[in-house]
Amino acid sequence: MFKRSSEIRNSVSITFEGQQIDAEDGESVAAALFAAGISGFRYAPENASLRGPYCMIGNCFECMVEIDGQGGRQACRERVRAGMAIRRHSGLPKPEAES
């Protein structure tokens, strides 16, 4: 779908659903995922359909992912940091009981 117009300058390593991805430090998480060929970012809770970014300006919330265990993060607004673990947002993270 998308490709980089120039090489990565400050490469950092992140993961998406456990798979390792090289990304540009500080770019938007959405850009990093697109550049790695990923287009489905979340499952809509209403009908479990796969969704991806639509507006890229923080309005549509279709780009929600889980970052380091926190669901509901907007991939168009979050910036890449080394070691980020990203997963698809299912819309339904399970609340954990207090241990």
């Binding site: 120039s6 850009a31 550049a35 796969l50 507006c55 890229m56 300006i57």
Partner: peptide, 24 residues
């Protein structure tokens, strides 16, 4: 229009400006 792979032109332009990403 909810399928991944459909997005707004503005969104693609933002990816272009913000991250140098180009549609193929």
């Amino acid at each position: 229009w909810t399928l991944p792979g459909v997005m707004s032109i503005g969104a693609a332009q933002t990816l272009f400006k913000d991250s140098g990403l180009l549609p193929e």
